[in-house]
């Protein structure tokens, strides 16, 4: 587990931490662009999320009179927790220096911590919008999180490990093959990823109709640098989920420990391709489906939970499934 503190490992970890942070706004910009083009609009430029962040960071914070310390600490905590979770995922290389410090269950739980802080911050000012956002967020999470854990258990049973590096190596090997349980897990994972990232059909990231919002209602009171941190955290989360789909279900080309620089560069390029494909798919999917009523969402997520459970059950019945 503790390899010698090799420079390459440090470098890979550093590249990973920096690249997830730098690419995350671009990915969101891409999704927005794809959606705009499909609506026959020009759409904002790809770099717009960076500009938004810079603008927000430069502005002063307008804080509600009765905001507590929790409200001011939460944006940094949410961002930090999401960033730590994102830097534990082998996006292009498995030789991450600290990937052993948290496995897939820990990553799921870290995202849970971020959501916990976010939902609390939504309730801090004591407005009805914050409350409605937090209340619906925890309702969605109460099904999305168990569904995610079921997917984790499925993958862990297939690979015999919950450690992401081991899982990625195993799934990239021909031994993994095509499995029913992984197919079920993939469908479930896509549903969970849509819900976790507040995308259509669960939530609408671009809505201005207050009663249909979940995530946006929770962060309604935020402004300035606080809002920038929360936005950046949600960009990161989108990147994290698409990378996770890549790492778990399409792990081909991932650079393994000990492979050369060339291989790492190829893997990096492949990761970018995977992210682009994921972003385009997300944009197309969002345009081709309508948002659900809030009480239809539990059925949608319940399906993901059941698919995940089915995958686990299949693997308990037969390890080859």
């Amino acid at each position: 587990m503790i390899r010698d503190l090799l420079l390459p490992d440090m470098l890979i970890e550093g590249v990973q931490m920096a690249s997830v942070l730098l690419l995350a706004p671009l990915l969101t910009g891409l999704v927005r662009k794809v959606k705009a083009r499909l609506q026959r609009r020009q759409g904002p430029p790809l770099m717009q999320p960076y500009r938004d962040l810079r603008r927000l960071l430069g502005k002063e914070v307008v804080l509600a009179d009765n905001a507590s310390w929790l409200f001011r600490v939460a944006p940094y905590m949410i961002f930090a927790v999401t960033w730590v979770a994102a830097s534990l995922i082998p996006t292009f290389a498995t030789g991450l220096l600290f990937s052993w410090s948290g496995d897939l269950i820990a990553i799921t739980a870290l995202l849970g911590s971020a959501r916990f802080m976010q939902a609390l911050a939504g309730m801090d000012i004591g407005t009805s919008f914050g409350g409605i956002g937090s209340s619906r967020e925890v309702m969605i999470a109460s099904l999305a999180e168990p569904a995610m854990l079921m997917i984790v258990l499925t993958v862990a049973l297939v690979a015999g490990s919950t450690q992401l590096s081991t899982i990625a190596v195993f799934l990239a090997s021909p031994e993994a093959g095509l499995r029913v349980s992984l197919a079920l897990a993939l469908i479930a994972f896509i549903i969970v990823a849509l819900a976790e990232n507040a995308r259509i059909p669960v939530d609408n990231p671009a809505t201005h109709l207050e009663l249909t919002m979940v995530h946006e209602a929770m962060v309604l009171e935020y402004s300035g640098r606080h809002l920038a941190m929360i936005d950046l955290a949600s960009f990161l989360k989108l990147l994290l989920y698409i990378s996770l789909i890549g790492c778990l279900f399409f792990p081909f080309g991932i650079a393994q420990t000990g492979s050369g620089l060339q291989h790492h560069l190829v893997a990096l390029a492949l990761w970018l391709v995977k992210l682009t494909i994921g972003g385009v798919f997300l944009g197309v999917f969002e345009m081709s489906i309508a948002k659900m009523r809030v009480f239809r969402v539990p059925n949608f997520l319940g399906a993901a939970f059941m698919l995940g459970l089915l995958g686990v059950l299949l693997l308990f019945v037969s390890q080859g499934m």
């Binding site: 307008v62 009765n66 004591g126 009171e221």
Partner: peptide, 8 residues
């Protein structure tokens, strides 16, 4: 930082 009434 500026304090003000809640936006809501």
């Amino acid at each position: 930082l500026r304090r003000g009434p809640a936006w809501d």
